[in-house]
Write a protein that binds this DNA or RNA. Structure first.
Lengths: 243, 243
DNA sequence: ACGAAACCTTGATCCAGATCAAGGCGGCGA
DNA sequence: TCGCCGCCTTGATCTGGATCAAGGTTTCGT
């Protein structure tokens, strides 16, 4: 369950310091957070929080990836969010959450007990403001995903997913080759996109056959023809892409 | 365009005073808001804001209903939110929005110019906190809708939509008959649910034939068999419904 | 190094919902 | 009052993606 990890540092040296809920904090505020936090670790596949379970702490995701998912009575599930480093888990003012949170890779969380944190939010506008920004960014992402789920074809969904990963990994590693890591299995991708795993596999294969993408192994791919990929997403040509 | 309306009142008497962005404000704060606000009116069908247009004001919806929608290159559209009285339009910190806002009925907005409002958010924790609550509630709603769009059948989508309206109108009018008003056309409902208008019409008909609902006219219906309706939504039996 | 389990691919078939098509109904302006 | 137009219903047909099915491949524990 609890996996050891070496990313436990003081807030000042934290890798997500400038993007997480603490981004706007000055060094005094950071000192308070530093004394409140504890780290927790989860292995890939572990459930971090169950829907409806009393919420004892809130947290920032430090390393790894986690999914938010909702389930229907008969077991159909839909992923409703993908958390990456600096994303926030839990919401002040609620004692439970409406979805399950699962570690998709090994995960490190920076945790704060809920009630002291809520007090902090009341007293510290910098935290409240940042929390609002994070919530509004997630809302934008959720709405973008609603368009995908409601109106895009399977091919467009896959292309959008790959393009999203390309854009994101491009920000991190500035080198040309655009090697992309899929942190999810075909089954998890299907849950994310509102498809079945067979359909995901088929459309990966056809994009591969068309020379748009190439796989080095099952979890690593490369975009060979970015214009074709963007064309396949069905989105407006927004042009805001840096070559 | 601009439709006259009689709901222009002082904040203290405002019908949405206890639910809108001003909900947590004390009377001094309310006085400031009162002096900043202006009302605007829109007729059913008018576009309130276009995607990407510079955002000059933010607003609370006072009366009527408005939809948020996103569009793909080829014209397919998906409604990504339905705004009702007390809901908030716009986001402090951004100069534009990512979707179109359209009046679905005649609408009254309580508007604040963006930059003074942003200043107010900085200085007034009560406003910032309430704004965050509203954003997080919308995020919950968006995720619930992602489950619907990604995994529910057409019948389940329609049943969920009707049950949502039933729940909401039940809160407002406590009388038994549960007469529900559809503010949307079949086409708009289809855009909301990620379906076509024909499919919406067909499933309304079949729920009618089964005696679950009854229409008095095209825009007014009654729930005859609430348990059957809830069964048809595909959701967990949550039991949290007051008879 | 071996075997089992988890994961992925590809093929065949089926079906829910889209699309195409043809009226019906009701409200509104002339 | 009539006729048009916007909206809704219902039927016929088509099709994209689900489902069912059968291996292939990688990973991991022993």
């Amino acid at each position: 369950m609890q996996v050891p990890n070496i990313t436990e540092v003081r807030c000042q040296e934290c890798p997500i310091r400038h993007r997480a809920v603490c981004a706007r904090c000055d060094s005094d505020e950071l000192e308070i957070l530093n004394s409140m936090k504890t780290y927790r670790h989860f292995a890939a596949g572990d459930v971090i929080l169950w829907r409806g379970e009393p919420l004892e702490y809130v947290a920032s995701l430090v390393t790894g990836a986690a999914s938010l998912s909702k389930t229907l009575e008969d077991g159909r599930t839909q992923m409703v969010g993908l958390l990456l480093p600096s994303d926030f888990i839990g919401r002040p003012g609620r004692t439970e959450i409406e979805f399950d949170v699962t570690a998709t890779t090994d995960v490190t969380l920076c945790c704060f007990n809920r009630s002291p944190f809520e007090k902090l939010v009341e007293d510290t506008p910098h935290v409240a403001q940042r929390l609002m920004e994070l919530a509004l960014d997630e809302l934008d992402a959720a709405r973008e995903w609603m368009l995908l789920l409601g109106r895009k074809t399977a091919r467009e969904k896959i292309a959008t997913f790959v393009e999203m990963l390309a854009r994101r990994s491009h920000v991190e590693q500035k080198d040309a080759p655009r090697l992309i890591t899929l942190y999810l299995t075909r089954d998890q991708i299907a849950n994310y996109l509102g498809l079945t795993l067979e359909t995901v596999s088929r459309h990966f294969s056809s994009l591969k056959k068309e020379g748009v993408i190439a796989f080095s192994d099952r979890h690593h791919l490369q975009v060979l023809d970015l214009p074709a990929l963007q064309e396949a997403t069905g989105d407006d040509a927004d042009g805001g892409f840096v070559s």
